[in-house]
């Protein structure tokens, strides 16, 4: 019973938008960045990516860029590659819609890129306003011709990221990695 009390406490913390420290799959994503020689990481604030963002900021070998909107990240990762550095762009599914026209930059120049997206509006979403964009996220990538790799199993996080990096920097594509809301948890505002 103590476990479920603990789980409920964790749910409450997550509902307040605090990073969920009990989930360790972000560590696997961070390890994949190091293994694949990522040098720049751009992000917008995001609860699902909070643990990963903290790890990246603490790593002084990584140049982290805090963005005011996701579109800015497309320019930054394109510039990083022009300058010879690999990068990763972190965002929530809502930001993918913001980026559609900017994806032209990556597509027209065949820039390799790994865009790591935490999903909302998907698994157990409680807020109606999140659902339209969450359901359209995959389509936005597909519209612009980007391959998608789904991550819905925390145990497979590292190998999923490895697949994405291989397709990006081996296959020469911009790749979207969609992290299922099932892995993150849906806010219910304690309702």
């Amino acid at each position: 019973m103590e476990g479920s009390v603990k789980d409920k406490a964790q749910d409450a913390v997550r509902d307040l938008g605090m990073p969920d420290e009990t989930k360790t799959w972000p560590d696997d994503i961070y390890r994949s960045f190091k293994k694949n020689n990522v040098r720049q990481v751009c992000y917008v604030p995001d609860g699902g990516h909070a643990r990963l963002i903290s790890q990246c900021i603490a790593d002084h070998e990584l140049i982290t860029t805090s963005l005011t909107t996701e579109e800015e990240g497309i320019g930054v990762i394109a510039g990083a590659w022009l300058g010879g550095q690999r990068s990763a762009l972190l965002m929530q599914s809502s930001g993918v819609g913001n980026c559609v026209n900017l994806f032209s930059l990556l597509a027209a120049c065949t820039f390799p890129a790994v865009i790591v997206v935490t999903m909302r509006g998907q698994w157990g979403e409680y807020v109606p306003w999140q659902i339209p964009m969450g359901q359209a996220t995959r389509g936005c990538f597909e519209l612009m011709g980007f391959p998608i790799i789904e991550m819905d199993d925390a145990k497979a996080a590292e190998e999923t990221m490895q697949a994405a990096f291989q397709m990006a920097y081996g296959g020469g594509k911009s790749v979207g990695v969609l992290i299922s809301q099932r892995m993150i948890g849906a806010k219910t505002f304690s309702k």
Binding site: Q40, I63, T65, W81, L82
Partner: peptide, 10 residues
């Protein structure tokens, strides 16, 4: 922003 990413890399 493309200039920013490039300047940080170089």
């Amino acid at each position: 922003t493309t200039g920013l990413g490039l300047a940080l890399a170089q």
